[in-house]
Amino acid sequence: MTTTKLLKTAGLVAVLAYASSASAQDDSQLVINGEIEMITEVATQDYIGGLKTAYSGWRFRNSDMQAMQLDDFENPAAIAVDEGLASWSKVDGSEGKSCASCHEDLEASMAGVRAVYPKWNEEAGAVMTLASQINNCRTEQMGAEAWKYDGTEMTGMEAVISLQSRGMPVNVAVDGPAHDAWLKGEEIYYTRYGQLELSCANCHEDNADNYIRADHLSQGQINGFPAFRLKTGGLVQVQNRFKGCIRDTRAETFKPGSEEFVALELYVASRGNGLSVEAPSVRP
């Protein structure tokens, strides 16, 4: 190696200097309808090694987009929520039942539910997401067909159930029987998939608050899901979002509802334990 080469290798040092760019994520307070106060910033649990503070994706959006979530009359998810509400009491399947037949009052029976999912289900012997639980009710209790895992009926129902927990802190359990799935989710989160060799952490942990072309990277938190995406003009199921992100690394994705994505959902939810349930949120 010549002297000039050595000198130029010192460029490595120069490279390190760029890392500390100023924070663009803001301190705005999210209060919905002037009354429901949201926790958009919280210290993470010790088991989340790479992240000290969790921020809701809302904190990374510009003020116009933030405003759409402040008032339910401005939130474009309202139509999907209405549809979810209608299917809550709609009879379907061979048993002549609706969700309301078993659970009765939506507000009373579903308060707090979204905050603790995904969670271990003893009978199934597996971690279940809210979506898989909904489909389980349809097939086992109602004798109805399962909905498409990330289809519109499912996201509408998830949204209306999530609304009953709005403002409550996410609180998924990561230990006990769910621990194996959680570990698997953690492994997936840090695996560099695809021809671009990028992991979730590369973008959402190492580069949160940086820009990748026009996209302002958030921490990829899921407390706001299902989320209304302005880009597609519809509610997006969380595992559909995961699929899109993995696809963007030029990788073969996992399927919504797969064991891998269920584990990943549990793990990512735990990175935001303590943030308020914010669904249905408004995102780019």
Binding site: Y193, G194, Q195, D206, R247, R250
Partner: peptide, 23 residues
Amino acid sequence: VMPSFYKTSGFIRPGNAFTGKAA
């Protein structure tokens, strides 16, 4: 995090461009 622009092996679940399907 910079991708390797002249490399064709050693990837985990490489896809068929941006289709989300397997290569």
